[in-house]
């Protein structure tokens, strides 16, 4: 118990430490605006990948419309900021909450019919939903249609994104280790056996689905207030697939894997700008190689925490025995 508390404290300190380093580098101008933007995009993609992993990796349901939930959150949040009349600092948290809530409600409504389906059918329903959302946004007036929604104040700085990303990772991590998380995983393992073990499968499916949608909505809200302009084209099918690739590449059922894959797959396209046209080709090749040689993803179901990295480094450099096993 005491060791667990120490582990929490170390994780918290290291999370704060990483933040401080980046924040100072940004403040000092070592990290320029371009790289700050890249960091923010990484944070947003981590939120998206980790939340999709809850549904795809832990609940075991293939969802192809995560960008749809993100767009609901993005537009809802942006519209609140633009129309609330509150000072920006007060409007922003409210806008993010509104984005989460809107995405959660839409997730719930989609979930009612979709979660009766399994496998391919659920994938097709969510794919259809993502496209429907995009077309609706395109057709509506107050969303700006194809011209997009402009002039959203840039309120989502590195601090906001980093903190909310850390909270998201924490929430999913502890959720998975609670009784609710076990119930969610049991559905992935064997739905019939889960029912027979007294698990209200419909409830737990909905819980995972709505939470994932809400977090995608949060990512959308942050995105809107980072980029400043929203167009429906951003949230197309390809983006849903990109998020799914992060989850698959990192390992379905590994939160750490999603984080690592989200970082790699956000940096990689930037680094390969000159090959932009071949990006999707590269993704496909990477995925095929992955499925052939390591279908469980980079990290499989493996998890590590910052604290455990610290322990291992300490053991390597100072020789002390690493005594405890992973939490």
């Amino acid at each position: 118990m005491k060791k667990k508390l120490i582990s929490y404290a170390v994780n918290l300190l290291l999370t704060a430490g990483i933040y401080t380093v980046f924040a100072l580098l940004i403040q000092g101008g070592v990290i320029n605006r371009y790289y700050e933007g890249l960091l923010i995009n990484i944070g947003i993609n981590i939120i998206l990948a980790v939340s999709l992993n809850l549904v795809t990796g832990f609940l075991g349901q293939l969802v192809l419309g995560h960008a749809g939930f993100m767009s609901v959150g993005a537009y809802a949040a942006a519209l609140v900021t633009l129309n609330s009349g509150l000072p920006e600092a007060a409007a922003f948290p409210l806008a993010l909450l509104a984005g989460m809530l809107a995405a959660a409600i839409v997730g719930f409504l989609i979930g009612i019919p979709a979660l009766r389906m399994k496998g391919d059918y659920l994938a097709i329903i969510t794919l259809g939903f993502g496209e429907i959302i995009r077309v609706i946004v395109l057709a509506l007036d107050f969303t700006g249609g194809a011209r997009g929604l402009r002039g959203i104040p840039s309120l989502a700085d590195f601090t906001w994104v980093y903190v909310l990303m850390a909270v998201t990772v924490y929430v999913i991590f502890t959720l998975i280790r609670s009784r609710q998380g076990r119930a969610i995983i049991s559905i992935r393992e064997d739905e019939i056996a889960a029912e027979a073990a007294g698990i209200h499968t419909t409830y737990y499916k909905m819980l995972a689905f709505v939470l994932a949608a809400a977090l995608a909505g949060l990512a959308g809200g942050l995105y809107a207030h980072h980029i400043g302009i929203l167009t429906p084209a951003k949230f197309d099918f390809n983006y849903s697939v990109e998020i799914l690739i992060m989850v698959v590449l990192g390992g379905m059922g590994s939160i750490t894997g999603s984080v690592v894959a989200a970082i790699i797959l956000t940096i990689l396209p930037e680094a390969l700008r000159s090959f932009a046209d071949y990006r999707m080709v590269l993704y496909s090749v990477v995925l095929i190689i992955m499925m052939l040689f390591k279908p469980s993803g980079l990290l499989g179901e493996f998890e590590f925490s910052l604290a455990s990295i610290g322990r291992k480094l300490r053991a390597r450099f100072f020789g002390g025995a690493v005594s405890r096993k992973e939490d």
Binding site: R182, E189, I192, A194, A196, A197, G198, I199
Partner: peptide, 25 residues
């Protein structure tokens, strides 16, 4: 409560979690 003719365990998780899942209710 029942068992199945062709065993239906939660295969990829720990033995103890298999039991804890049935205690969820």
């Amino acid at each position: 409560a029942r068992t199945f003719q062709n065993i239906r365990l939660f295969k990829d998780i720990s033995v103890i979690d298999n039991v804890k899942i049935a205690m969820n209710a």
